[in-house]
Design a protein around this nucleic acid. Sequence first.
DNA 1: GTTCCGCTTCTCATCAGGTGAGAACATAGC
DNA 2: GCTATGTTCTCACCTGATGAGAAGCGGAAC
Lengths: 246, 246
Amino acid sequence: MLEAVLTNDGRSSIAALARTMDVPVSTAHRQVATPVSQGYLAQTQDRRHIAGPRLLRLLPLIDEKQIIANVAAPFLHRLARALGTVVQLGTLENEMVTYRIKTGVGAGDLFTRVDMQLEAYCSAIGKVLLADLPEAELASYVATGPFPALTRHTITQPADLRRELAIVRERGFALDAGEIVEGLSCIAVPIRRAGGAAVAALSASFFTSLSRREIAEALPALEAAAAGISLALDGPMAPAAVHREP
Amino acid sequence: MLEAVLTNDGRSSIAALARTMDVPVSTAHRQVATPVSQGYLAQTQDRRHIAGPRLLRLLPLIDEKQIIANVAAPFLHRLARALGTVVQLGTLENEMVTYRIKTGVGAGDLFTRVDMQLEAYCSAIGKVLLADLPEAELASYVATGPFPALTRHTITQPADLRRELAIVRERGFALDAGEIVEGLSCIAVPIRRAGGAAVAALSASFFTSLSRREIAEALPALEAAAAGISLALDGPMAPAAVHREP
DNA sequence: GTTCCGCTTCTCATCAGGTGAGAACATAGC
DNA sequence: GCTATGTTCTCACCTGATGAGAAGCGGAAC
């Protein structure tokens, strides 16, 4: 019911609300008066209704990235099974990548841990997320370089990283070709919200180096998963299905 | 309910929730299962509970500034009555000040309108809000100068504005001494959230120029009102009193 | 002014739907 | 294995939501 008030933001008189949600006015009145008395809603001087101060306190408690990871989880499990590899999901927190999901066969062989924070410049997920940063923030990040080399393939020079990120931005996915650990390759694609911002990224890891052909084969599945997650987040109202994966 | 889940964010099993909100487990189970089936909440693989994707869709519908203005309204009315002047509340939207409340005697004589957008560099409210901007954003704002002079007192030079804002930041309030309209003076103070960020500012307007003494007299009332609003927003849970001012 | 119309607020008899004890089942720890 | 703790579901009970209706309040039209 709250929902109706918020979607109308501002222009919702009680009578109008009653009409839009098709209930008697007396019911609408009470269903609004109760949340108002608790501070979840508020009414303006001219008897319209808006969100209340108590929602303001709940706002910072909501962890957007956590919700996204939770929604994404079943997609990642499916993807990992389809590809037969390890699939991970990461988000960017003050210029570090947080790994939030790790699933698939061989997950134990990979050095990452859930909730681990890692440098962004050397991972596929990190590069995808960096590539989407606004120019000002990106500039301040690359200014912290040159970056420590973890293998002989690691990109260490700011100028090289910028060039790499431009490529990532254009082609829509990122690669890590043994830049963290020798012999470990990853492909990552962004997960975008309705506004177009990349709020997370998912990657598939391979314990070999990848040929162009292998990349081209894996990519569609990754992109389909990312698109599915975007749709679940911002598309038509979720089907409310209960996912319960092993 | 929802609130308990959010405040526990993450570590809330059903049994734990039942204990913290002191209800039988079966009740807690249902009270969680219902929102989960609607997408307001979600459960993780390990049966803990977090916010659900549907809340993610409601998030952008909540207008923080509007809520704040609504909470602040009664304080402004009281302040205007106490000072016998026009009192206004404004917020910063992409470097312009939006006037959201205007109250008090003589409100008709002042050129501002509710919902009007005005340049920030020349008003007291604008200066208070600019002074609180992060350095990066402030730099990009002053770079848009020099600014058009509206009166012979208007600050037009970027360097002068930076100097003025440094003073504002230090002493905690801003003045407008005929910088928009000859003969109109304003005093503005910031309204701060718990984090310390200034999310809005309130000002008192006088149709004279102000002496040091007059400023010193009005200031405590302004600051008390701002403090009261901050408390109502972030202090101990609001008293849920029904304000109904003329 | 008077009349009308739409909105808000409150009351109260009715009954849908929430409640919570308890059983059945699933896990985890020792 | 056993015990302790958590999850899920059922069902008889009764609380608390429901909505028609009435009363009060403006504002617009005439």
